[in-house]
Amino acid sequence: MAKMIGTIEVDIETCKGCSLCVEACPTNVIALADEVNGKGYNYAYMANPDACNGCTNCALVCPDSCITVYRKKVEMV
């Protein structure tokens, strides 16, 4: 059977750490980093990358358009 695997890329310096993507992610992939970016925000990152299915929800709700989403269909054995 086929499965969607995905990944996101966060523009760390544009991220304001609002946490809306964390909330929007249905598979709990995203968390806010302990580290801060140049503006002092705890930026979003993939804390649990294995769970990402590339659904784009995080990018849709991101007010600062700092999330890029990739998705690929893979055949599961």
Partner: peptide, 20 residues
């Protein structure tokens, strides 16, 4: 594999709005 990225109609300026 790109499924969602920032539209080119948005500029690269960082928005002055509050987080969220």
């Amino acid at each position: 594999n790109l499924v969602y990225g920032k539209t080119k109609v948005l500029t690269d300026n960082v928005m002055h709005y509050c987080p969220g």
